[in-house]
Amino acid sequence: MRLGSLENLRSQLVEVTLALVVGFVGGALALTAFGYNALENIQVMISYGFRDLGYLLLKSAPIVLTALAFLVPLKAGLFNIGGEGQLYAGAITALFLSKIGFYLAIPAGALAGLLVGVAIGLLRVVRGVNEVVSSIMFNWTLYYLSMFAIQRYLLDPVYTHQSIRVDRVLSLPEVVTIMLLSPLVVYLLLYNTELGYRIRVAGSSSRVARYAGVNLNIVTIQSMAIGGFLAGLGGAIQVYGVTTVVDTTLSSLYGLGFLGIGVALIARGNPLAVIPAAVLVSGLLIGSHWMELRGRVAPELADVVIGVIILALSAPYAYRVLASRMGWGVGGG
């Protein structure tokens, strides 16, 4: 597919700018309401958040992948809320494999995510279980399974609050390469291949898909497999390229999958736009930690500020997606 018309691009830019303004004003209001100096704190958040480029990109990479993990099934009309669990599966599997050989660990992590995705797809196709419901259940199941696995099999004998440490296999340039290439590959897959076309037709309307001879069951499993693969890859990269260790409470993994949903929505479902969206969100996240540190803002409030901004950015597109799915008579998707 070709890029949208200039007019379309302009209206999107206006929408994003407005959303940013609304988001920051909302965040500032929240800060003021709790008695903090809004201007000062937001300034800290922005200036510190985007200062260390290497760290920023490193933080963004897993989110790019979980955003794509949400985006591909979305194009087929499926809500993959399971990126979170698929990411855990990828990270823990990769950790396990560090004992055998790390060059296998990353593809194995991706494969583990893929299997979780396929399981969710199969449940939907064979048993008619809504993918949102099964995704959420898988998320929790995998959350506790992962904690168990770390405690039982992967615990560091010295630092007992975390797993064994792996080598940083992926250098910063390698992580950035994966982060930049994955969206491109997904874009080409969606818009320039038969599979991508089938996925998008299925997402446009199941009736049309049937008419076109697209097997909806197969597309469901395929798109969930791709989504799971990407999230699993994200988990493996988080371990081998970013943290090299996972603590027993999974705090270094927790939330990356959900963040991907917001990022995919901010990117308006465009795989290439996922990159700047992920960088923006990561920057805000890093900045919010500085805001806690410098401005003594309560962590919960810092989360509220970021939440308001992400909400403002993603709400218009999220509404359009929902509206077109529910038949509210608004174009979108």
Binding site: M1, Y197, R200, V201, S204, S205, R207, V208, Y211, A212, S324, G331, G332, G333
Partner: peptide, 16 residues
Amino acid sequence: VEGLALTMSLTENSII
């Protein structure tokens, strides 16, 4: 509504 994917382009719909 059955024969056209309304959110997709003319070109894409031509090859369904």
